[in-house]
Amino acid sequence: MGMAFCIGLSQEAKIVAEILTVNGFEVNSVICKNCSIPKEEINIKENEKVHPNTYEPMCNPIGQAFFLNKAKTDLNIILGLCVGHDSLFIKYSEAPVTVLAVKDRVLGHNPLAAIYLSKGYYRNKLFPEI
Rank of each mutant, 00 (worst) to 15 (best):
E41V: 14
C82N: 07
E18S: 13
S10R: 09
I37G: 03
V27T: 05
N69L: 05
I42W: 01
N60F: 00
F89Y: 15
N34W: 00
I130T: 10
C32Y: 01
P61D: 01
N34Q: 11
V30P: 00
E40I: 10
K103W: 08
F127H: 13
N47W: 06
F127S: 05
S29F: 04
P38M: 13
E26I: 14
F67M: 12
C32P: 01
K39W: 01
N34A: 09
F67C: 07
Y121K: 14
V27C: 06
Y55A: 07
K39I: 12
C32E: 00
A101T: 07
V22I: 13
K49N: 04
H85L: 02
S29E: 10
P128G: 05
T73P: 06
G24E: 08
N34M: 08
E26W: 05
N69R: 03
L68W: 04
L75V: 11
I37M: 01
C35E: 13
E129M: 11
V102K: 13
M58C: 03
E48H: 02
V50T: 14
T21M: 07
T54F: 03
E41K: 14
C35P: 00
M1F: 11
V102D: 02
P128T: 07
E12W: 04
K14V: 08
G63A: 04
A114W: 00
G8F: 05
S118C: 12
C35D: 11
S29I: 02
E41A: 15
L68F: 04
F25T: 01
I15Y: 11
L126I: 14
K39N: 06
V27E: 05
A95W: 06
K119G: 11
E46G: 08
R123L: 09
V30N: 02
T73N: 07
G63M: 03
N53T: 06
Q11N: 14
L107A: 10
N47L: 07
S10T: 11
N28P: 01
I42Q: 00
Q64R: 05
L88T: 00
E46H: 06
I31K: 10
C32G: 02
L117S: 11
G80M: 04
K70V: 08
T98N: 06
L75R: 06
K45L: 13
H85P: 02
Y92R: 04
A113M: 12
L100R: 02
A13Y: 03
A113I: 10
S87D: 12
L75K: 10
N124Y: 02
P57N: 01
